[in-house]
Computed example of a mutant assay.
Amino acid sequence: MKHSEPNLLGITINHRSMRGDARRFADVTRAMAEGRTAGTPQRAREIQWYLSNLCTGIHHHHQAEDDVLWPVLRETAGAEVDLGELTDDHRQLDPLLDRIRAESAALAAAPADRAAAGRLADSLATLRDLLDEHIEDEERTLFPVIMRYVSGEQWQRVEKAVRKGSKMGFELPRIERYATPQELETLYREAGPVLRLLLASVRGGFQRRERVIFG
């Protein structure tokens, strides 16, 4: 019998940030492809930087699920959970993430190339749709199983694996962007003053990059 419940706030915000970023970068690159947003060298470089980090973060997230969360669920929930379809989704993601990395590099090399922007926009739209479907399925089917079968201690082990290797200078400002004010206050209470200090140290540079990308 488990002694404490998992806190799913972190993974919920992480999921929201991945979906939100895929959506807004699909939009901005489509606007570049259609000539509604200028394809400047600085904008294209910052898009490449952001998408490189985003793709790395998405890969790390689903790899941690495969390597750490899935074994925990098989151990605790057994026949109550079917991970086949979600695992197949993970396999589809990696080639798409590689394509987005390559296409964002091509755009950085030729920022005024509207066709290059269009190819990247198409790939990001595919990522957006795949993440929307995958995450909705995962939260609907797995979150109740996690809450029923996984202990708080086991869940902390999963979260530690997700945090390990994450680029905090990239991930923390995105948490701030996508969390509600109430969720942020909860995170501040749980993490203590160190979270506010870390965010203060990375917020400015991150916001400057976003202004270049989105205007």
Rank of each mutant, 00 (worst) to 15 (best):
K2S: 12
H3L: 15
E5L: 12
I11H: 03
N14D: 13
H15P: 12
H15W: 10
R16W: 11
M18D: 00
F25E: 10
A26I: 06
T29P: 11
T29I: 11
T29H: 09
R30K: 12
G35V: 07
R36S: 14
A38G: 10
A38R: 13
G39F: 05
P41R: 11
Q42A: 15
E46N: 07
Q48C: 06
Y50H: 12
L51D: 08
L51T: 06
S52D: 14
N53T: 00
T56Q: 10
G57L: 05
I58H: 00
I58L: 05
H59N: 09
H59S: 12
H61V: 00
A64S: 15
E65W: 07
L69R: 01
P71C: 05
E75C: 04
E75L: 11
T76M: 15
A79P: 07
D82K: 08
T87P: 02
T87Q: 12
D88Y: 00
Q92P: 03
D94P: 00
L96V: 07
D98C: 09
R99Y: 03
R99W: 04
I100T: 05
E103D: 14
A105H: 08
A106R: 12
L107C: 10
A109M: 02
A110K: 11
A110W: 02
A110G: 07
P111A: 13
A112M: 04
D113Y: 07
R114M: 04
A117I: 11
A117R: 04
G118W: 09
G118V: 13
R119G: 03
A121L: 12
A121W: 04
D122W: 10
S123P: 07
A125C: 11
A125S: 15
L127H: 08
D132V: 10
I135L: 13
E136N: 12
E136I: 10
E138H: 05
E138K: 09
T141L: 13
T141D: 14
L142W: 04
F143M: 09
F143E: 10
F143A: 07
P144C: 06
P144W: 01
V145P: 03
V145M: 05
M147W: 05
M147Q: 15
S151G: 15
G152R: 03
W155G: 01
Q156F: 02
R157F: 02
R157T: 13
E159F: 04
K160A: 15
A161H: 10
V162C: 06
G165P: 05
S166I: 00
K167Y: 02
M168N: 04
M168G: 10
G169S: 09
G169H: 05
G169P: 04
R174F: 01
I175M: 10
I175G: 02
R177Q: 13
Q182Y: 06
T186L: 11
T186V: 13
E190D: 14
G192R: 11
L195G: 08
L197Y: 14
L198D: 02
L198Q: 06
A200D: 02
V202M: 03
R203Y: 08
G204R: 11
G205L: 11
F206M: 09
Q207D: 14
R208H: 15
R211N: 14
R211L: 14
